[in-house]
Amino acid sequence: MRRLFRNLSIDRNPGWVFILPSLVLIGLLGLPLVALVWRATGKDFFGYVLSPVALSALKLSLLTSTVSVLIALAAGTPLAYILARWNFRGKTALELLIDLPVVLPPSVAGLALLIAFGRQGVFGVWLYKIGISLPFTTAAVVIAQTFVSAPLFVRSAHVGFAGIDKKLEEAAVVEGANEWQVFRFVMFPLAGRALLTGLVLTWTRAMGEFGATILFAGNLEGKTQTMPLAIYLGFERGLGVAIALSVMLVVVSILLLSILRRLERRSSGAAQDI
């Protein structure tokens, strides 16, 4: 262990004061994953992965998280642009509103969604009058996922837009570009990396959504039972499917996170180039 740290340490004395507490945390974070993969490796793994429950959960999770990400992109980009470029009254409150779902427990989100958009909900009653009932539908899954994950995209895009040099924007205006053209040909490409980072974050969060979904959308295989829900119920049905799905989610998350790391490294590299 000393050997490992020697080159990094200035005084060549790593100090167990730092290493030991770190090991506690590393163990806590790492051991469960090791155990999960350890238990998953067996001849039945692919049988569980290919079981109908697992496959329909996987399909549903991919579909709903993709739609959620697209909604976040379509509605979150203009919102982030407004936040980054305009000044108006109530902007702080709006930013708070957007940050809130990130810290709220998903169960609160689910309950709030149910009370707002449920059939007998505060706003849901109007929807119901025109024949729309959201709870227990795949749309409800998407709404729950968007509610908890889209703010991550808005935050990231906001930072991306805000970081663009104002001079570039002004130059475009001098050249005769209107607001849309400035956005389309200057801001959007320059903030591309931040938007992509936001998309990946949003996607991982949407894929992992559990609490708001089970409360607002319920649990029905093929319709509202996403991977996290199938894991939770599979936990009681027999651990096989639950473990297989968990490993799949871990793998997907690792993939998305490594994409994220690559994006971040490149963007910091680009910043140094300027």
Partner: peptide
């Protein structure tokens, strides 16, 4: 059936 709940009290709640 629109939802299979995880315990009976959740059925009551819905």
């Amino acid at each position: 059936v629109v939802s299979n709940e995880n315990d009976v009290k959740l059925v009551v709640a819905k």
